[in-house]
Nucleic acid binder design. Structure first.
Lengths: 362, 362
DNA sequence: TCGGATTCCCAAAACCTTTTGGGTGGCGGA
DNA sequence: TCCGCCACCCAAAAGGTTTTGGGAATCCGA
């Protein structure tokens, strides 16, 4: 009886399918040099015996065109397979319907970040929001010597973690693009830009309180060399927290190009009983350095990290999660608000603490 | 001593930064209705007292222009902040430097898939490949009633899991776009398209052998309602495997719109001792249905699933992983080959089996 | 039959750049 | 002195669409 089903599966299939033995070679279509030029509105007009104007009006429901003519134009256009050239429409209207997402720091290997969970989730959130509002999102690489993005038409740009004097922002503004940033712009020249930020102040507070409650008294911070608001605010909030509690503070930063593990080693040399790391890489570096020193976790050292966790899973390291999907969504919303004339609402997205084993003593 | 460091951090910062108390309101720039129109090549020509032609030549290093003039043009253009309008360049050259990635089936909620790990990894792979070869990647939503993607200029399109008579492919071809698919095109009309595919035949073989080695003799397959090559090839390979081994086969499909759990229940009613599920959702549905029946895993029922696992982690469910990043990369490469005149190499990306607890008896 | 209002349609400008195919003036050689 | 060549530059077309500002019929009432 089971076998019957399988036969059924085999038999009732579309006859079109065959085993994949054919090679996937290239086809004929395309705007190549071959015969078939694309059919333009001009061709439709000629075929219908009408003017270009009338065809345009008929197709777009704009001007005064008799119903009969309108219908005939539709018919002819359909037969010819006419499709308006998007590039021409963009040139004319100035509106592309595309917003860009600048991925990658000027200061770092641009694409390394793409793989990171934060970017992936951010992108997904921004994409959905954009599409909901009838925009497409193009993720563009930026970085030293990468000007590809300037050659692709777009209406606005989302810049993640802007830095002081951010060249991408400057170039975008010069081009007349609307700009929204994820993270407060550091540069005073960009202070007027709309932005979305994660609630780092509260988030760092959550982490520190959590560690403190777990018994930590010498909490170190492993930070980065990038001067974005996330890093700066994290460091500052951390410092204020320590000062308020009259507890010692130790910040260590990875120099540009330096392996995170070296910075982690330096930090552990200050003998902290807990460390908060500003991203996953740094967190792993702390773990590695701790292991090299024979420190047990969480017994000798508690570790927390800024990272993204899959919803519903429990991370090994206690994690401060920034909800990047919501941040991305908010960025896209703000940018599109700006493009459509609405005043973007300043947004602060709350972060949440996901406890893991790395801070659970006993 | 620890405290000193913190003071250092607070003190040596760029004076530009301040606490984030200012609201992120909108700025002034933009091509809005306000005064500042964008400066075009015409403005540069006028300012330099030259013709448009000469300016263009000077800026692009094309025609015969004296070094002195060339330099002066550069100077003026810089001062005016001239940037060529990408839309005009696209209209003229016909080349956008953008390739699209169609996300979502015509038959399914378009965005549901975006969140899936497969898409995320696929996108990342395609994006990196595209950028390496000086193309940008725009992820466009497709689905019933979604024609947004047709309005954005691009040179080619990657279609994931094409179905019979795929409307996206047809529309793309009609527009003269180059098309590459992830998964062999089902429709005979698209048989000539270049494609990249995962090695499903080998992959299913791995899964079935693995289950068989673990003692399974009545292996069921939980499949989907989409008629793409992934589904079809999986089912067919599965059926052939069962036939060759003279073992019973049971395939159950979720009807469109039907909760996966119902199909899983139907499948378990055939009393299999192992089930392979064609995606994560289906795998979870099998687990849920098994639990409802009081079946223990892997004791009473072994479960395998097609899914992506983070490299270096061990999944709970034994997983057939398709290496979507490589697939995405190969798709982008093939598409760009096609655009640049090269003949795309047909590619088959191997899949790998990652054993988990769900098939380890004893 | 004429004027005016309608109805339907069209020519041309505009969007911005690149490229083609000259055109102009100066210089050297004859 | 004249011719040809060279160096430098430019006008105009092309690319495909939308929109502006009419223009030519047609129809109605007077």
């Amino acid at each position: 009886m089971l076998t019957q089903k399988v036969l059924g599966v085999k038999g009732e299939e579309d006859p079109a399918m065959g085993r994949p033995k054919d090679t996937g070679r290239t086809a004929g279509a395309g705007r190549g040099a071959e015969g078939g030029r694309t059919v333009g509105i001009k061709d439709v007009a000629r075929a219908a015996g009408l003017s270009i104007t009338t065809v345009s009006h008929a197709l777009n429901g704009k001007g005064q065109v008799s119903t009969r003519t309108r219908e005939r134009v539709r018919q002819v256009a359909e037969e010819l397979g006419y499709r308006p050239n998007p590039a021409a429409q963009v040139l004319l209207s100035g509106r592309t319907g595309v917003i860009g997402l600048a991925a990658g720091h000027q200061s770092s290997e641009p694409w390394e970040r793409t793989y990171r969970p934060y970017y992936a989730a951010f992108t997904a959130g921004a994409m959905v929001e954009a599409v909901d509002r009838d925009y497409a999102l193009v993720v563009v690489p930026v970085g030293p010597g990468t000007d590809l993005w300037t050659r692709i038409p777009m209406d606005g740009l989302i810049v993640v973690d802007p830095i002081a004097g951010d060249p991408v922002i400057n170039e975008a503004l010069r081009r007349g693009l609307a700009v929204v940033t994820d993270g407060r712009p550091i540069d005073p020249a960009h202070a007027e830009l709309p932005y979305v930020q994660s609630d780092i102040v509260t988030g760092i507070g959550l982490v520190m309180d959590h560690l403190h409650d777990a018994g930590a008294r010498r909490i170190g911070l492993l930070s980065g060399s990038e001067l974005d608001s996330f890093t700066l605010d994290s460091e500052q909030t951390y410092a204020e927290w320590c000062t308020t509690r009259h507890l010692p503070a130790a910040v260590e930063r990875t120099a540009p190009g330096e392996p995170a593990r070296d910075a982690a080693r330096r930090l552990l040399a200050t003998r902290p009983d807990a460390v908060h790391a500003l991203n996953r890489t740094y967190g792993e570096a702390v773990l590695a350095a701790a292991q090299a020193l024979g420190l047990s976790i969480p017994g000798d050292l508690m570790v927390t990290v800024m990272d993204e966790v899959e919803p519903g899973t429990r991370p090994a390291l206690t994690t401060l999660s920034l909800d990047p999907r919501r941040v991305g969504s908010a960025c896209a919303a703000a940018l599109i608000d700006r493009l459509t004339g609405a005043e973007p609402e300043p947004v602060t997205v709350p972060s949440r603490l996901v406890p893991g084993e790395s801070t659970q003593r006993g």
